[in-house]
Design a protein around this nucleic acid. Structure first.
Lengths: 195, 195, 195, 195
DNA sequence: AATGAATGAGGGTTCATTCAT
DNA sequence: AATGAATGAACCCTCATTCAT
């Protein structure tokens, strides 16, 4: 595939750029999850090991960087959801597994992205995520784990809430444990309301 | 020196200073709930209608301002809890009422205050709030609304979480509605787990 | 003396005011010698144990405070000079004693007072100090300790210079020692030039 | 990565950055000598013709700026000393010439740098300056211009003192004249003490 | 007359963003 | 295309000064 024609140079540049882009994304996700909020851009650059201007080349403003981060994380969440569907089928338990996986996938960073309404990529991704979620919710509904008064959107909002850091000084492990536990209670509540 | 006053007040506080302090607190609470995070101090000053240095006189640093805000809000929450106890007695429904009231009292600002561990006033207030909550939880437990595996602390953490803004661009009213609804589901979950 | 007539109050107030004024002066001199430069006014107030506005009542602006400080210090220096004259007469050694005494009296604060030209009190005081100095210099000249090319003004400038902190991190004791030693060498130089 | 350069320069410094750095240094030296004390950073920036943040990039805090200034001035002083040695040899007159040159080189700014103890560059520079001074003092001692009780360190302290502004409102020219004259008298004193 | 609160201007520092290399 | 310097706006904080009590 990579034949040595004379125009190969631009191709190789792309690989560099691609790698840089990915590094910047990873660095941002790490910083958002570690420190919370919107990390200074030169901090992102330093963590990613690139120059500040490279960050700007790839993501002309903070919005676009955060948007890319959100897309990335949502992709991971969707992948986790699909895996769950493949493995356990759409039963009531599958929804639970999926939501726990979403928390672990870093869904928590998603709520930094207010103004993503109107963004096509984002809406597409959301639609995909919702489709997965819909199928899981449908299965759960069939199992009696979710009642008729509860929509998939309600559940998505709940997942987002449980991803948020409590910000009371818990260490990351305790934070995660609490989130998972509260999510379980919430799902119990849904099931109770359904019965 | 001149004990011309029968009440021996330690040091008569100036009326306008007191008023300013209160205004600054109100302004800060509003801003935290509206915008989230730590509001710039000159914004606080402008909103409160005082000069910037007045904010600094009353609250030498951001920590102390946020601490005062947290205390204020917790006081309001406690007052709401006591009122609930007085009116409805400590039954299972009372806990629900109390937690909804806490959300409305602005408990959501509380999680801005990491390093309040070791602060006596704060710990006192927390103790008081916990006492109220304990009594409400005990009543709920007797009613079967809370199971043996759930502590008052668990419930406090949940309340804090439901106070946090979702930060997905909802307007304040929708935000409140979602919070109250999710809280209800969570409480249903507790009751289901208890039964 | 303190008879109980109805108009006694204003008299007593004056004593208070006088004492406050003196406290403020002392506090300022201490701070200037300790920290160097122009001390913040509320620091002066705190050190003097009075309210900030009291400082302003007595000294409406920084200039006037520093001016008063300079006058005070110069008075002390003059007093030291007169004492020297009384004790040792106007010989060559007397000039040396006087200049060392001036350093110890805190003459060093004097150079914070640029724009005292045109101030009558200051000029009077300077005239008095110069008169003392002139007599000492005249005596020294007669002894051959000061040559014809050196004026009293030259010597005054030198004294001021030797009062200044070196600002290289020496502790106050070492600072004083160096100043006295350098002054001695300078005076030796004068004598050498005279011979 | 691309070692296309035979000189293996560690990291080619940008020309404009270098120029800006130098401008900032010059501006600071000027301001210190003119106004004394630590000049506001935006004043430095304006005088140097750069943005405020450029000052911060080169010198993250006031300390580092003043340190660089001190190093620069000491370098100039050393250069002056070496030139003196080359031209006039290490006789008694050479020391006098050197000290006058040091004053003119701006040695006066040196005393703004309290906490440079422990700074290697500074100590190196000081060692170099001391070496030059030692040789000059040794020559002067041989000529009988400096006595056995006077060390090179004593003389360095004196030089620093004579550099300091008197701060009594003299214009720069008069200031310089007085300093040079007092230095001469001091050196006469040393010679007198030596004889 | 003394007190202490309120004010606002000024200097310090960080960070998002643009531009030269 | 990548780098790192320069820029200026925004925020932080202190202090001189005025004003209400």
């Amino acid at each position: 595939m990579a034949n040595a024609d004379s125009a190969a140079a631009p191709r190789r540049e792309r690989a560099d750029a691609r790698r840089n882009r990915q590094r910047i994304l990873e660095a941002t996700i790490e910083l958002v999850l570690e420190v919370g909020g919107e990390p200074p851009r030169d901090t992102v650059a330093r963590r990613a090991g690139v120059g500040i201007a490279t960050v700007y080349r790839h993501f002309p403003d903070q919005q676009q960087l955060l948007r890319a981060v959100a897309l990335e994380v949502l992709d991971r969440t969707i992948a986790a959801g699909c895996a769950t569907l493949d493995e356990s089928g759409p039963g009531g338990e599958a929804l639970r597994l999926y939501l726990h996986a979403a928390i672990d996938a870093g869904l928590g960073v998603v709520n930094i992205v207010h103004p993503l309404v109107e963004d096509t990529d984002w809406l597409d991704r959301r639609a995909a995520a919702e489709e997965v979620l819909d199928r899981l919710v449908a299965g759960a509904r069939a199992d009696g784990a979710v009642g008729p008064g509860t929509s998939a959107a309600d559940i998505a909002l709940a997942a987002i809430r449980f991803c948020r850091p409590l910000a009371i000084g818990l260490d990351p492990e305790a934070e995660r444990a609490v989130a998972h536990r509260q999510l379980d209670i919430y799902l119990d509540g849904l099931a109770a309301g359904a019965g």
